[in-house]
Computed example of a mutant assay.
Amino acid sequence: MRRNHESRHDVAQDNVHRWLISYADYMTLLFALFVVLYAMAIIHEEPFETMTDSIGRVFQSDQEQTKNRGQGEDILPVNSSRSETRLYGDGILEEAGPELTDGKNELSNIEKSEVGTNLESLEEELHTALYELVESGYAELEIDGDWLEIELSSGLLFPSGSASATNNAEAILSVITPIIKDVTNYLRVRGYTDNQPINTEVFESNWELSVARAVAILRLLEEQEIVPARMAIEGYGQYSPKVDNNSTQGLLQNRRVVIAISKYGLERENVIDTPSISVKDIELIKQEVDSAQQGNRIRIVELENGGIRITTRDEDNQDN
């Protein structure tokens, strides 16, 4: 009997300290809980939301709620992104994302184009060349998307109600053309007017006037050896005002011509060299023809290099 009593006493002594194991487990879990709560308190909101959204998409990519939902609310918001747009990239979704492009090509006559000279560098050169006009307010330079716009007041280029370019127009363009002549960027010459109605024998409306002024500037650029294949004209009339036409200053600002330089350029192999003969050379030839008509018979001789020579000498009898 004594032996049995001692055995029961030993078993009882062994069970006395088992509560320490449960208490230690409880304290460990409680410590881990406070660590997690502290970490959640100091974490930045945006990275935390990104992390929770990512974890949610990993486990529940096609459902708004958890698969094994209990009686309470979820700790992490699953698929709770504010946008319904799917994100593409090196992630779980294997779908191809949207194709990225370098801007829409809006030039209707370009089938194959390449990026031309940098617009920022052209703007710096043009600003230096047109510094006085820019400072006085008669010219403006601005990069608008894929275009570098050179805006010139019509008062500098044309008389009122006319599309006949003045000497000032030729002088201003002679400053611009050396900078844009050797690049391949496309050009658009745009004409604008104010909203004052016009109805003359030459121009029935502001449409015709804006187009005629754009054509006049394009002709001057062509005479100064800008490649014609790079250029086109646009006429906006009174329907694209820069400011309100309620004041004299507003009317003046809306009467303008814009030379727009595109970021895209003509491919080098498609650039056609302009003729080497200039307008002054043509005038000299005309003078020689007029003077020669008063004397001997005029003869035109084709040279080996492709040029021509106008003479009144008889090549067949020059040795006599």
Results as ranks from 00 to 15, higher is better:
243 V>Q: 05
261 I>S: 03
236 Y>G: 05
276 S>C: 02
31 F>T: 12
138 Y>C: 05
192 Y>C: 01
1 M>L: 08
72 G>H: 11
56 G>R: 03
139 A>C: 06
311 T>P: 00
239 Y>T: 14
227 V>R: 08
45 E>H: 09
242 K>G: 03
27 M>D: 07
177 T>V: 13
113 S>A: 14
312 T>L: 00
209 L>A: 00
319 D>T: 11
86 R>F: 05
265 G>V: 01
142 E>W: 07
43 I>H: 03
28 T>I: 06
14 D>V: 13
20 L>R: 13
108 S>W: 10
152 L>Y: 02
306 G>N: 05
9 H>K: 15
41 A>N: 12
151 E>M: 07
48 F>Q: 06
151 E>S: 12
46 E>I: 14
35 V>I: 15
306 G>D: 07
259 I>F: 03
280 K>D: 12
11 V>E: 10
114 E>P: 02
80 S>Q: 12
135 E>W: 00
254 N>Y: 02
164 S>M: 09
87 L>K: 15
141 L>R: 06
207 W>Y: 15
141 L>P: 03
143 I>R: 09
315 E>T: 05
82 R>N: 11
180 I>S: 03
57 R>E: 04
320 N>H: 07
252 L>R: 15
247 S>M: 06
157 L>T: 00
101 T>Y: 11
224 Q>E: 05
151 E>D: 11
130 L>I: 01
118 N>F: 05
300 I>D: 01
